[in-house]
Design a protein around this nucleic acid. Structure first.
Length: 423
RNA sequence: GGCGCCGUGGCCGAGAGGUUAGGCAGAGGCCUGCAAAGCCUCGUACAGCGGUUCGAAUCCGCUCGGCGCCUCCA
């Protein structure tokens, strides 16, 4: 199994089964309903887990909930904890409805504060951090490797336009701990006074708490490479921890086509996508693009995914029992988890009539392609149509087919009866 | 300006020096009372310009175009 590693900029071999494979995928900051783009790393993480397990790996999948953040304070003045809790529940509901199961651990920043404080204290003791007026900052100058993940050169990271924070020794330094401000309604006690963790530290700590100081995979959106992941790496390596070996960064979703969303964010929530297209079409959509590349989310691309799903469903209605070499799929996935290639293979199996393997292959990605059964009223119409056909009253039969169509179903005449398919 | 990614047939999208990717949409046909599904047939594409090579969509250079990040966005 090889995966593209942002840190080394090449494909990297995973240890052989059973591993272990310890995987941390950055989860959401909970301040609003998550959008489809947020689903991509989650989907990828659960897919990877199930496939690796099938290959005999011992996998632990950690996915965090960042429930302490500036954005939350800003979005819900005076009620940030409440919003964070609500948005956490939304996220769990939305990702549950993707039907891929839950990560093995869903740590929350608010439940990790003592460990975070300990971690920061150690950084301070070792000179990698300093406190000023209740804030604690990471001393970038003390960590010469800074920039290795994102390819940024430390000396080029100075932004002249930015008003420098006078508390920082160096404008590149970033906050590990922030003193409580009057409009922030949650806080924790610490050696530096009342405050709360900065943005990046919670991930270093939660990952190491659950996976240890060295683990195999760290994932997340490409937009997190800098500064978020760069900073995580710096904090942990500063303490001598290897931290993540392979960094996987998934490409962004591009929202094109019809404008959705409000003022500027033309985004679609996971919920909306689920309601409109169904979870299986959505999952199939995610398969159509390689995880490391951007994909367009549009009516057009979703319709194409839905059409592919229908094709698979139709094929599985047939009683086909051909046999194919199932390892072909594993070969595709073993090479950087190439789902578009995997999808092409599944289509070949479909065309070959290898339904058992096709079903197993789809299930790996959480797609059961099972047909819902038609409501009784629709079944009745179909039975009436059968009777009309038997009586060779085709005009009536065609009218009944139209009525069935109006209910959102399609009748097909098959050997010895009919079949009802939603459309 | 800095770091990086990408441009493949109407659309989506693998591949990566010489061999059919696959799908969606479309056309014709078989089947069907008519359909649907299924099956058969049909597309010789790799942004442009140079170069390397016996041979390039695949390597090199330049140009054009799109995108991400550059302190809180998955």
């Amino acid at each position: 199994m090889r995966l593209y590693n942002t840190l080394t900029r090449r494909l990297e071999e995973l240890p052989p089964p059973p591993g272990p494979i310890r995987m941390y995928v950055c989860g959401p900051t909970v301040y609003a309903r998550a959008h489809v783009g947020n689903a991509r790393p989650f989907v990828l993480g659960t897919w990877l887990r199930s496939w690796l397990r099938r290959r005999g790996y011992d996998v632990t999948f950690v996915h965090n909930i960042t429930d302490i953040n500036d954005k939350i304070y800003k979005a819900a003045p005076g009620a940030s904890a409440d919003l964070a809790e609500r948005a956490t529940q939304w996220y769990l509901e939305d990702t549950d409805d993707l039907g891929l199961g839950r990560p093995d651990h869903l740590p929350r920043a608010t439940e990790t504060v003592p460990q975070i404080v300990r971690f920061i204290s150690e950084l301070v003791e070792r000179g990698f951090a300093y406190d000023v007026e209740g804030d604690v900052y990471f001393r970038v100058a003390r960590y010469p490797e800074y920039g290795q993940l994102s390819g940024q050169r430390p000396d080029r990271l100075l932004d002249e336009d930015e008003e420098p924070n006078p508390l920082k020794e160096d404008p590149r330094d970033f906050a590990l701990w922030k003193a409580n401000k009057p409009d922030e309604d949650t806080w924790w006690d610490s050696p530096w006074g009342r405050g709360r963790p900065g943005w990046h530290i919670e991930c270093s700590v939660m990952a190491e708490e659950l996976l240890g100081p060295v683990f195999e995979i760290h994932g997340g959106g490409l937009d997190l490479v800098f500064p978020h992941h760069e900073n995580e790496l710096a904090q942990s390596r500063a303490l001598g921890h290897d931290f993540a070996r392979i960094w996987t960064h998934n490409g962004m979703l591009r929202f094109t086509g019809a404008k959705m969303g409000k003022s500027e964010g033309n985004v679609v929530t996971i919920r909306d996508a689920l309601d409109r297209w169904g979870r299986e079409a959505l999952l199939l959509y995610f398969m159509t693009g390689h995880w490391s590349k951007p994909i367009d989310f549009s009516d057009d691309t979703m319709e194409q995914a839905a059409a592919q799903l229908a094709t698979f469903r139709d094929a599985l209605l047939l009683d086909a029992q051909a046999d194919v070499d199932e390892s072909e799929l594993d070969t595709a996935l073993a090479e950087d988890f190439n789902t578009p290639d995997a999808l092409a293979i599944l289509h070949r199996w479909r065309a070959a009539g290898a339904n058992a393997q096709l079903r197993r292959g789809l299930e790996l990605f959480g797609i059961s392609a099972a047909l819902p059964s038609a409501p009784a009223g629709v079944v009745e119409l179909a039975e009436e149509r059968e009777a009309a056909r038997a009586a060779r009253d085709f005009e009536r039969a065609d009218r009944l087919r139209e009525s069935i169509g109006a209910e959102g179903w399609e009748v097909r005449d098959v050997e010895g009866g009919f079949q009802l398919v939603p459309r």
